[in-house]
């Protein structure tokens, strides 16, 4: 017996509804457990970092961790964080009046560490300087972005909305520290986000976690119990290019005057 018109419509209607519902349910299953409601409050934090030059051994673990964590292109001219090696030659006794510029290198951004280059005891001063976005409180990059794609979050981080950035590169020009690059695949700007996806869940950044000597430490300046306050009180601190007055929140201890 062939179904009547009414039966056919009712059956096919049910079939369509049920497959739709099943598809939706399956989507939910594939998506996994809904995330726990975050109790992260933007206004309760003010992020920065302490970088202790005297502790940095130039192993490059931070660079590797960062590239892996944040899908940074592996080519040697795209970095969210990198390490520079400074070699400050001794004063020329014959011509002490001439300023000798430091010799600086950062092969592959320090990704593979550094091979020995300078002799011990030659009178020179040698150290490593890890660098990353300074998450400035008065960011020149935020100021110049024509569409507001890069912005200062109320928790003190400077972030990029990659769906909004039009790739004009004005912010790259405006950053005094060279912390920004244009992603070769997405064609929008990219830079350190202070591992925002981690710090908002109570974790530290990938670079801080990977650092074997504790040369980098994430700091929350709004948290009264954060050891950063003790550190800032008891150590000499400098930021990079203080004359730029960007309100940098990368607090360096042991920073030499030759570092730029």
């Amino acid at each position: 017996m062939s179904p009547t018109r009414r039966e056919f419509l009712a059956q096919s209607g049910k079939f369509l509804l049920l497959t739709g519902a099943a598809a939706l349910a399956f989507d939910q299953i594939l998506a996994g457990k809904p995330e726990e409601a975050s109790n992260y409050k933007l206004t309760n934090h003010w992020w920065g970092m302490i970088i202790d030059i005297e502790k940095c051994i130039g192993c490059g673990a931070c660079v590797r961790a960062d590239k892996a964590e944040n899908d940074v292109p592996r080519q040697p001219y795209y970095f969210r964080t990198w390490v520079e090696r400074y070699h400050v030659p001794p004063v020329d006794l014959q011509h002490p009046e001439t300023e000798s510029l430091p010799e600086v290198d950062s092969p592959n951004g320090g990704y593979d560490g550094f091979t020995e280059k300078y002799r011990r005891g030659d009178g020179s001063k040698n150290f490593f300087v890890p660098k990353l976005c300074n998450h400035c409180a008065h960011s020149p990059c935020v100021q110049v972005c024509p569409v507001g794609a890069t912005f200062e979050s109320p928790d003190g981080t400077v972030l990029v909305d990659t769906k909004y950035c039009m790739g004009c590169r004005y912010c790259v020009q405006a950053c005094p520290y060279g912390c920004r690059y244009i992603h070769p695949v997405t064609h929008v700007v990219d830079k350190c986000s202070l591992c925002y996806h981690r710090i908002t869940k109570g974790l530290t950044t990938a670079c801080c976690e990977a650092c074997p000597t504790g040369a980098r430490r994430l700091a929350d300046l709004k948290n009264p119990d954060d050891p950063v306050h003790e550190f800032l009180r008891t150590h000499t601190i400098q930021v990079l290019k203080p004359q730029m007055a960007t309100g940098s929140k990368m607090f360096y201890h042991g920073l030499d005057g030759s570092v730029r």
């Binding site: 935020v142 110049v144 972005c145 024509p146 950035c165 039009m166 790739g167 929008v188």
Partner: peptide, 23 residues
């Protein structure tokens, strides 16, 4: 021609960042 995402350039008029000289 220079922009990474020219299709987004209209945002400069729709949601301009008033502190940006370029906007």
């Amino acid at each position: 021609l220079h922009l990474g995402h020219p299709e987004r350039s209209i945002e400069m008029y729709l949601t301009p960042n008033t502190s940006s000289a370029m906007a």
